[in-house]
Design a protein around this nucleic acid. Structure first.
Lengths: 240, 240
DNA sequence: ATTTTAAACTTGTTTAGACAAGTTGTCAAT
DNA sequence: ATTGACAACTTGTCTAAACAAGTTTAAAAT
């Protein structure tokens, strides 16, 4: 038996997703949750806090937890989710073309200087992939994975899913990422792979992903067709 | 005396910002925090959880809380922060030109349909502002504020800071926002106000901001020069 | 010297209880 | 009818304690 609060969180979230608890209505009170799930109040509160953090509910003191209209899953960049996981959530046919694979090259540090202060040109495996969505090439992903963490990356992992390989096969625990979104003019490679006209722009998402022990191990530059790009965010106002 | 955990959070964050606790080193253990601040363990854990959520530390079971390299404040869109608050954090000279002010107009619902399912063309006050940074016009902000919540918006509030007016003068409690970033071709108004060439692109941030009682009250379309736009995000991997 | 074991640390989860503080409805006094 | 006080709800914060589980170090056994 593990993690009651996570079970409660999952159950409540599922019921919100399935409109058992509809937007504008209140969830059962904290004391009622104690009875419903046979838990203590703090355990229920932990689940509610996470729902609030993720934008499912708004807690109102003295009244209760009201369900708010929630963002549906958005393609292709919110949180840390692998391309394959996203593709499965959406109803789209996707293709994944590995068109570059180099081992023992140096990390292009200048590409990620704005994301991290100190960085060295450590040896990495470089993977270039083209994401084709509904028959149209939409995204170029350039991944650089530290050789120190992943000595021998199988090409099949790039073809399938890097995240599945890291987590399931290697047992790596991916914890967090810092990412940055900018708009830049398309370069020759963009124009060729994404079939863009001269003068076109691309949305560039650069990210540094770290493990649970706080070591960064994956650097990604993701270049999106401007007209297909969409990023959605939920943010809370931090008082003072 | 109020909110011990927030006090501990502030103190630790300040010490991280000032490099008293440097990236790569560990914070005092939870039991040490109890002694240091005279608090119970759960109170300290609450502060640590928030620091982890905000990207300041990474908790490692069995070891401790390690300080990680933290994003510095980014112009102009991360979290819910007013333009004025951001401008004060950065070292830039800014100007704020109100070039549109209309009362009792209808909310342009089609502009925000992707952010909210149900919406009606309620009466709003419409404000158009041009943000000039270091002498260059960089951002157009179009705000639509519900008349039902803010019956009479003083023009001076638009000139100064809408958020300061909402929070300090009206006592409104701003709680959360959903926002969406897309890239779109510049329209005539963009080209004129931002001095753009034909064929240029702009980064568009549309957001719906809600109060603590979960009622949405402010709709904003923010249009940025593509070459100046930058968005930074910290995300944690949610397991399973 | 190497391996195993155990102790002492760390964080993770849960409990039961207390009190503060915001909201709502009821009933009594006006 | 209006007002005021109160009770009964709600969430917010904090405590002290227990046990689980991961990490590290050192002592003990091999």
């Amino acid at each position: 038996m593990v993690n009651k609060s996570a079970l409660v969180y999952d159950d409540l979230r599922q019921k919100i997703d399935r409109d058992v608890y509809q937007p504008g209505t209140y969830l059962p009170s904290e004391n009622q949750l104690c009875q419903l799930y046979g838990i203590s109040r703090e355990t229920g509160r932990k689940a509610l806090a996470e729902l609030a953090e993720d934008g499912y509910i708004q807690k109102i003191r003295g009244k209760g937890s009201i369900v708010i209209e929630h963002r549906q899953y958005e393609f292709p960049v919110s949180g840390i989710v692998s391309y394959k996981e996203l593709a499965e959530k959406m109803n789209v046919t996707t293709e994944n073309v590995v068109y570059g694979f180099e081992e023992h090259v140096s990390l292009p540090v200048q590409m990620f200087t704005s994301l991290r202060v100190e960085m060295t040109a450590e040896p990495v495996t470089a993977v270039k992939r083209l994401r084709v969505i509904d028959g149209e090439p939409d995204i170029i992903d350039k991944d650089y994975i530290l050789t120190a963490i992943v000595p021998k990356l199988p090409k099949a992992a790039a073809q399938d899913s890097l995240y599945a390989y890291f987590e399931n096969d290697l047992g790596l625990e991916i914890a967090y990422a810092t990412k940055e979104i900018t708009m830049e003019p398309a370069n020759d490679e963009d124009r060729e792979q994404l079939h863009l006209d001269p003068g076109a722009y691309v949305a560039v998402v650069r990210s540094v992903t770290s493990l649970a022990d706080a070591t960064p191990f994956q650097f990604t530059e993701s270049r999106h067709r401007a007209d297909k790009f969409r990023f959605r965010d939920f943010a809370r106002r931090t008082k003072k």
